[in-house]
Design a protein around this nucleic acid. Structure first.
Lengths: 132, 132
DNA sequence: AGTCAGTATCGACAGATGTCGATGTCTCAC
DNA sequence: GTGAGACATCGACATCTGTCGATACTGACT
């Protein structure tokens, strides 16, 4: 009870994380859905969850990362392609990507020694719908 | 030049602020518009601007404030109505409201000794469109 | 005038966050 | 196996941020 909106929340920091390369068909099967901002008294716990995801994109470096990944060939980019445009150190870029990954906004797939990051558009769309 | 998107940015922290009560017809005349996230290489300055607005809503207390204001009678609420539901001190609530105000997400109008806050839906909508 | 209620600002503090260099881990090529 | 390259993690640091109590401000009502 008390969850009037018909979608499960949670898993802000414990999402996708598909590190296993042999399971590529797993996709983002969970519909990304949060309680709409307009649903009257937003409970504190829900607000924390939403804020967690929003905080992930409320950073200039991470916004640039999202922009760069989306504009990249095939909609994916490896870390090595992102370090130079951002003008930040490789560890810092890796850190930001992890934040986006934990928020479920990007997925990671390793090919060889490269790690390719890809957006999860449903997640972004859900966020957008939330504000509208 | 270099601003390919046809809308002006800036004024993240120096917006609306319509404190003058005798000018009520002034509304949010400025169309709230930012460079879409999909417009290829997001420049650092633009990313900072966007992050500034996003950071304003990336906080549980402020999300609850937005929710409460929207749900309030007449679409507006005074500080006294917001302190109790949030479970935070009055100065803290005032602080959060100022953050939202500086981001242009709410407006303030004083009537008597009360300060009524009201959402700027266009601003929220612009933010939503940005992610979609 | 004086008082009081509603808000805003100030100063201080603890905790979170962005950043880096150093180091660890993994994969491929030789 | 050795080495090199790509990436992640760790530890440390400076800065930002949320929170509060104390205080100042503002308008209304005696």
């Amino acid at each position: 009870m008390s969850m009037s909106h018909g979608c499960r929340m949670g898993d802000v920091a414990t999402t996708v994380q598909q590190d296993r390369p042999p399971t590529p068909g797993q996709e983002a099967g969970e519909e990304p859905c949060w309680p709409a901002l307009s649903e009257a008294p937003l409970r504190r716990a829900d607000a924390e969850t939403l804020a967690g995801v929003l905080r992930a994109i409320a950073d200039p470096a991470r916004l640039q990362l999202i922009s760069l990944i989306q504009a990249a060939r095939g909609g994916e980019a490896c870390v090595c392609d992102l370090v130079a445009p951002l003008g930040l150190s490789q560890p810092t870029v890796s850190h930001h990507l992890k934040v986006l990954l934990d928020a479920g906004l990007v997925t990671r797939s390793r090919r060889g020694s490269w790690a390719y990051y890809r957006l999860v558009p449903e997640r972004l769309a859900a966020l957008a719908q939330l504000l509208a």
